[in-house]
Nucleic acid binder design. Structure first.
Lengths: 342, 342
DNA sequence: AATGTTTCAGTTAACGTTAAAGCTAAGAAG
DNA sequence: CTTCTTAGCTTTAACGTTAACTGAAACATT
């Protein structure tokens, strides 16, 4: 049996015009029910699948979404991505996965390539930088939604954690132990999430009557090893008991390693709290105290927002007017999960 | 400044024909160096990016790759995917991420959609089933490479772990403790990796003079919770010391939870070994004994093989002959990583 | 000087789809 | 019976790109 890959093949098999087949498959009212059924049955029988490339070409739009995050192996982003994929799939979109590794250059290159691919939209966690990526996206008129971070200077649509609240909750919790030193192993200080958490941390200390010291905040922790190194240095200088709040669970894991290396115990010598609620850490002993973040929900919400925005743009393009999209800012509520490291 | 998105825009700006611009951008020898430079400079200045949809349409091929795995949040697959993305990006391909959740229906639907998208190739870990996916891929003439699993009945190109060796190493290691019971918490018994590991496990026991008992092998463990439940039941029936070998680190984590719940200790009461070498577990205490798997390397190798296969097909299509691709089977070497749970 | 070759450009057509416009016959309205 | 409408199908054109072909001028070879 000859392969049926084009409308033409179906049309010839049924002795109707190509357009008629196209209309039948797209449920166009022009076609009589009888003929429609005939065509649909035949298409099904022949296992026909429309050529999306041709369709995208003709319609000047695709069902592809760019998904740019720093690293898909980061358990946090992995779950965000899963949420995105789930929603996009349900809506007939497909996700192009891109790892930026926090590199602005890579990120902008990705965006250029996504423009070439004519993607319907982009979801991204912008790398620390000067907002070049979002400016490009605006310039290319590509709908986008930021996830987990946002840019203060510009008005954007984003889904993020209520970082201030997260920082506040965590620091307040640590304050309750009354340890003399309350450290904060922070991520890159220029990104919104780091700033928000630090602000929350500072406010919590203030509310607890603790004067924050500059050396308590250690910025630039990106991974487990950075957490390990930072904690190691802390424990060389400071005598337990000490409290350590971490920007991520990854960092907390590294810190825990340093604690154990020193033969200190959690939570007795070191009260430790992470952020993200990575699933592994609720199983292992000691189960990590952390700030829960609705990661999949964040991804899903971001995807839904993007779809909304894409729809608005499509409608506007049709009528040849401005999209009139009003930016939306959504903050997810963090949750204090007290377990065994504090 | 008007937006320059088409060759036509460039051509008009430079007063040359569209084809000339196309040739210049594609480094065709027809164009003189002088003119070529002129056009390239102008294109760069105008920030032109070729319309990949139109290009794909014209050339009847895309630079898209389907990446179908069960779940991108699984730390194992996350690293495999990262390896894939890395290589594909370097070669100008882009990855469409799809989570099958071990569901054959979903998987085949994905493949149908990928056919519509005209992807250049597909990388996948086939869900346990009857080989429907690979048959579809063959039928649609889409180049593909299997990763981490293969199908015994059919001849395929794949990159997988030497599962037999992995099972053998792990079981042999556990045998050295001389515990009376040596359990194996296995994954779905119908997939190649489970079979291979079980075969290795059996052989190791035999070589150690241990008669394997049917009840030692507990199949169907998919996640942490399954590992927890299985270990819990084991510890209700059997008195320590006992050895438990797990198909994955995820399962081992669950098992460790059950061990700790019973107030047994690792490795004294229970010698535990996992598989995969998930990065978290080398940091936390107790650091898990496991079988190391080169996950990123597996992804990279799979991607390279797929590119090879795509190239072969492209060449064959050009000459209008059979591709003559000979299937390749690549096995990665596992590594015994003895740490603190055994 | 006549002929062949090379260089460098332009013209044409096609990839599969669908929106818009066109056409015909049947049915409705006057 | 004529005119108007509608249902249901077909024809045409276009999306941006590039392979194949065409053509003119410059250059090389006898």
């Amino acid at each position: 049996m000859k392969k049926v890959t084009r409308l033409k093949d179906l049309a010839e098999g049924l002795n109707v015009s190509i357009t008629t087949v196209s209309k039948a498959l797209n449920d166009h009212p022009d076609i009589s029910p009888k003929r429609k059924k005939e065509i649909l049955d035949y298409a099904k029988k022949m296992n026909y699948m429309p050529n999306q490339v041709a369709r995208s070409f003709r319609q000047q739009k695709t069902k592809l979404i760019g998904v740019i995050f720093s690293d898909n192996t980061n358990p946090f982003y992995a779950r965000v991505i899963r949420g995105i994929e789930e929603v996009m799939f349900r809506h007939g979109y497909h996700c192009i996965l891109m790892n930026s590794y926090e590199d602005v250059e890579r990120e902008t290159q990705f965006i250029d390539e996504l423009r070439g691919l004519n993607v319907a939209g982009v979801l991204l966690t912008p790398a620390a930088g000067n907002g070049k990526s979002t400016r490009l996206l605006e310039q290319y008129d590509i709908p986008y939604v930021l996830v987990n971070r946002y840019l203060e200077k510009e008005k954007n649509t984003y889904v993020a954690l209520d970082d201030y609240q997260a920082g506040y909750m965590a620091a307040k919790h640590l304050c309750s132990y009354g340890n003399e030193n309350i450290f904060f192993l922070n991520f890159l200080p220029e990104v919104s999430s780091s700033k928000g958490r630090e602000a929350g941390y500072r406010q919590a200390l203030e509310d607890c009557g603790v004067a924050a010291r500059a050396e308590w905040i250690i910025a630039g922790c990106m991974n487990q090893n950075d957490g390990y190194e930072a904690a190691k240095r802390i424990l060389e200088k400071v005598k337990p008991p000490v409290s350590i709040m971490c920007y991520s669970d990854n960092i907390a894991i590294g810190a825990a390693g340093a604690v154990q290396e020193r033969r200190y115990t959690l939570p007795h010598d070191v009260a430790l709290i992470g952020t993200d609620d990575i699933s592994l850490l609720s199983f292992l002993s000691p189960r990590f105290t952390t700030i829960g973040v609705p990661k999949m929900r964040m991804g899903r919400k971001g995807a839904e927002l993007l779809i909304e925005r894409i729809r608005a743009k499509e409608k506007a393009d049709e009528l040849d007017e401005e999209s009139g999209w009003t930016d939306q800012q959504i903050l997810m509520e963090p949750e204090l999960l007290i377990r065994e490291t504090s």
